[in-house]
Amino acid sequence: MKIVVAIKQVPVRDTNVRIDASGKWIDEADLEFEINEPDAYALEEALQLKDEHGGEVIALCAGPEHAGSMIREALAKGADRAIHIECDDLGSLDTLGVAQRLAAAVKAENPDLILTGLQSDDLGLGQTGVVMAELLGIPHSTIIMHVAVDGAAIKVKRELEDGWFQQIEMPLPALLTIQSGIHRLRYATLMGIKKAKTKEVKKLTPAELGAAPAAAITVERIYAPEKKKQTQILKGSPQETAAQLVEKLKYEVRVI
């Protein structure tokens, strides 16, 4: 089974992001990046499917040079090879532009299955996978919690709202967006890290993948949200803040 996993690098969770001079994106200088969490689970699912059924896992990423460290980590965890579409212009593309680039790279590989995270922790639009499926003309399903392969078809468990689930069957090739928490994530072993150094990372340029369409939607401005609620921040030592909060719970919230 040949599996492509599309992964993305995002700023490390809980870092303080600043807005850049253009006012349209965050200042990436001095930021640390990590793999988008849902994508880490998509990679894990791909590696588990390979453990079970054999085949090949190819990590695919469109992003700047610094995404190379994330790609090496995916290889160290067990991906067989990688494709890095090196580009610094992601900010000027919308989902369709990014998905077109990824789909063009996928097409050349002709995989059985394409996996990616259900959404990114930075933009959070949650569409890249679905749009890729449409561009590739293959069936898809989203927010997947389990994948079972049965010959040329798969049976997946899709999460619905409020604790409901649904089984869905579809023929391969197909694309799935994976929900966080589908498995425990594995760590790269020392052997894996060593091996990763010799694994192939194919570099592609955007030009090789065809011209990006004009953006259908654009970000005009980003800004800190206006506070809608007045939050009373309680200050002091742990004991002092605890005592203040108990007062509030007693006399204002009236739950003690």
Partner: peptide, 23 residues
Amino acid sequence: HTYRTRDFAPRLATRFQQVLIAD
């Protein structure tokens, strides 16, 4: 912006060369 919308609306928008402005 439900799970169902997230499942099909991006595909529908792509048919019109558009991108869903989500959530």
